[in-house]
């Protein structure tokens, strides 16, 4: 929901970044306020995924210019884990498998790390189980997934739901969903969208990085940004996504 009065969570100015010496982001500007839902669209190689990884602090990417502040703090002065603890969450496009580490152990460690960071009490396994049993309903996962190794043997859709479960447990201020919809069948898409919607509030915000309009039918964006050549070349409301669906990207690229 757009409310120009609400506080700014993320402010990115003229952000430039490269990977292996190749410049991918060539000056991105973006402001996200609490309560907003953003979608970033664009063709392959436009810089969408790079943008999310740079914000989250992936070590392969080097910031070469510009700035980003998260609730007023210089994002790039923080290590990846500090950004996470500050409330920045990235749902991965390709969630990794961690053999032998149970989902519940990982979730509890991540949750307790946050609690400690905020000066709050850690939860013991039993207390945490109460919490996670509630959260798992959000993504309609069978509780047996908690005892299984992280993502090991999960289907593509289960992995994506598992990402949203992590989001539900960690309650980030800003969640970036990097192509969370890719590889999801329509039922899984609906569950994921329902989960994300239930987590939205006037205190947090979501950025969906996606190729497709269909996710935006379920999670309705306040802003749609189109990325091309490492920049945001057009920003509009949800109608922009529909227009893209109908017309493709070429007309924007030509205009840019």
């Amino acid at each position: 929901m757009i409310n120009k009065e609400s506080r700014i969570l993320l402010e990115v100015k003229n952000l430039k970044a490269e990977v292996a010496g190749v410049e991918i982001l060539k000056g991105v500007d973006l402001t996200i306020r609490a309560g907003e839902v953003h979608a970033i669209m664009g063709i392959n190689g436009s810089g969408k995924s790079t943008f999310s990884k740079v914000l989250a602090g992936h070590p392969d990417y080097t910031v070469t210019g510009g700035s980003a502040t998260f609730e007023g703090r210089d994002l790039f002065a923080l290590a990846a884990e500090e950004r996470a603890r500050a409330g920045l969450f990235l749902a991965f496009q390709y969630p990794v498998e961690i053999p032998g580490v149970s989902n519940s152990a990982l979730l509890r460690l991540a949750y307790n790390t946050l609690q400690l960071d905020r000066g709050l009490e850690e939860l013991d396994p039993l207390e945490f189980d109460d919490l996670v049993q509630e959260k798992i309903k959000v993504v309609e996962m069978n509780p047996s997934f908690l005892g299984r190794s992280v993502n090991e043997g999960f289907s593509g859709g289960e992995k994506k739901r598992n990402e949203i479960l992590q989001m539900a447990v960690l309650e980030p201020k800003l969640a970036i969903l990097d192509e969370t919809d890719s590889g999801l069948d329509i039922d899984a898409l609906r569950i994921v969208a329902k989960g994300v919607n239930s987590l939205l509030s006037s205190d947090n915000a979501v950025v969906m990085v996606t190729h497709y309009q269909r996710l935006l039918n379920y999670i309705v964006p306040d802003y749609v940004h189109v990325m091309d050549g490492g920049r945001i070349v057009r920003t509009g409301g949800k109608e922009l996504a529909l227009e893209l669906e109908a017309r493709g990207y070429d007309w924007l690229r030509a205009a840019a």
Binding site: A56, G57, A80, E81, F89, P95, A110, T113
Partner: peptide, 9 residues
């Protein structure tokens, strides 16, 4: 990076 992104050192 996954662990770091979940706040774990």
């Amino acid at each position: 990076f996954f662990f770091a992104q979940r706040g774990i050192g």
